[in-house]
Write a protein that binds this DNA or RNA. Structure first.
Length: 430
RNA sequence: GGAGAUGUGGCUGAGUGGCUGAAAGCGGCAGUUUGCUAAAUUGUUGAGGAUCAAAAGUCCUCCACAGGUUCGAAUCCUGUCAUCUCCGCCA
């Protein structure tokens, strides 16, 4: 959420930013009016409350002095304020809700230097690592590989649940678990993150904090009862909200968390995309990285977080490139986002495997997550960052495709072998 | 799921209708004292908002949350949520 004062003082800038992000600007047309109205009503309501408070105090004094009649007269007077007062309180609530709603619907301001553009075409390559392997045979995709090896079963998942679900078996399931453990181990022992295992169901307040709500309700799976929980679409939600509504001490920052969780996304509006294989599922596994930092350090921490995610691909020997997303392609809450894309031989291209965002104070303001500098200074909002480190399902795909052999078997990267109980190769069980 | 108890500031903990945004203690911060540490001592110490160019000041709101009663609510009433104890059930 943007700061009210910032929007008031930079209305034109905000408008321009919205256009760069392909957002309609019409809500801003009402801003000035809404803002003035809100302040006028607050002033009025405060004045009435003040009148009531002071009169009530006088009544108390009169009662104690034994001046009953005067007190009664005063009571009647205050009573007559009541209608007006409750009406003003209602209006005040409406005005504040309207303003909150407007602000909650505005996306973050991109950082300086983020390429301006409408879509993916405007992303800019930052760096490449590794060389895509030359295969001297016709490469298969992960579906053909996985099914012929007997480690991937999509048909039965459809029977049990529906489309966009899959079952991993044997060495395939083990590979998924190995990747999770490997990633968590690297981030906790080499990169200084604290492992956390959060709830997989969250309430609406948390979803507001990390800006899934109010705008992206239809991307979530909702639990059908009065508690209104939703399945997490990413561990970013429970983990970033971990310290929501708290005031941390500056000396305790930065905080680094890493969490393994399943993620659930309805993928509404993506019906025709990536229908084959495991690229886009309703349920997938992810190891997430979350940082809470001082405002002045968030850019540097963002670079480090992205490097932490890239490190996993380097250790696994998977070629990738890192790009910076353009204004039109960035997520709602991000001020800057790096996507890391892994090489997929079957598609002869790089595909997203991680998205690392600096959200600045945008989410912290939504969840009222603050810190205090030494010496009793005013609380300030922390900066929040998050990134996948990595999407495990897509890493699984990349391992199969990049390490496939001519006979359809899969060579296990050396660093993963201890996590696979020493297994060097996944071969057909048939 | 059943029965009961509880929810006050960074913490402990007073407060059962007005002078309580909240005693007291601890902690924090600033000063004084002291050869240093420690101790002592004085002061200070919640958040959000309105007004204002800004600061100061003034005012409003907040004692789990949401409603209600009342001229007036931390205090009374209702609901919700959370925590604790006992029973049941389970992993």
């Amino acid at each position: 959420m943007l700061d009210l004062n910032f929007v008031r003082e930079n209305l034109e800038t905000v408008k321009k930013v919205l256009e760069n992000r392909n957002f309609p600007t019409e809500s801003l047309e009402k801003f000035a009016e809404l803002d003035a109205e809100r302040r006028r009503i607050i002033g009025e309501a405060d004045a009435v409350n003040q009148k009531r408070n002071s009169s009530s105090k006088e009544i108390g004094a009169l009662m104690q002095a034994g001046k009953r009649e005067e007190a009664e007269a005063k009571k009647a007077e205050v009573s007559s304020l009541k209608d007006n007062q409750s009406e003003l309180e209602t209006k005040r609530e409406e005005a504040e809700n309207a303003m909150r709603e407007l602000l909650a619907g505005l996306p973050n301001i991109p950082a300086d230097g983020v390429p301006v553009g409408a879509d993916e075409a405007a992303t800019v390559d930052i760096r490449k690592w590794g060389e895509p392997k030359e295969f001297d045979f016709e490469v298969k995709d992960h579906v053909d590989l996985g099914e012929s090896l007997g480690i991937l079963d999509q048909e039965r998942a459809v029977k049990i649940t529906g489309s966009r679900f899959a079952i991993l078996n044997g060495a395939g399931a083990r590979l998924e678990r190995a990747l999770v453990n490997f990633m968590l181990d690297v981030h906790t022992t080499e990169h200084g993150y604290t492992e956390t295992l959060p709830p997989f169901l969250v309430n609406r307040k948390s979803l507001f904090g990390t800006n899934q709500l109010p705008k992206f309700e239809e991307d979530l799976f909702h639990i059908k009862d009065e508690r209104e929980f939703a399945l997490i679409p990413t561990a970013e939600v429970p983990v970033t909200n971990y310290h929501a509504e708290e005031i941390l001490e500056a000396k305790d920052l930065p905080k680094y968390y890493t969490a393994y969780t399943p993620c659930f996304r309805s993928e509404a509006g993506s019906y025709g995309r990536d229908t084959r294989g495991l690229i886009r599922q309703h349920q997938f596994e992810k190891v997430e990285l979350v940082k809470l930092t001082l405002p002045e350090n968030s850019d540097e921490e963002h670079e480090k977080l992205t490097a932490n995610a890239e490190r996993i691909l380097q250790l696994l020997g998977l070629p990738y490139r890192t790009v910076v997303l353009s204004t039109g392609d960035m997520g709602f809450g991000a001020r800057k986002t790096y996507d890391i894309e892994v090489w997929l031989p079957s598609q002869n291209t790089y595909r997203e495997i991680s998205s690392c965002s600096n959200c600045g104070d945008f989410q912290a303001r939504r969840m009222n997550l603050r810190f205090r500098r030494a010496g009793g200074a005013k609380p300030e909002f922390v900066h929040t960052l998050n990134g996948s480190g990595l999407a495990v399902g897509r890493t699984w795909i990349a391992i199969l495709e990049n390490y496939q052999q001519a006979d359809g078997s899969i060579q296990i990267p050396e660093i993963l072998q201890p996590y696979m109980n020493g297994l060097e190769k996944i071969e057909s069980v048939k």
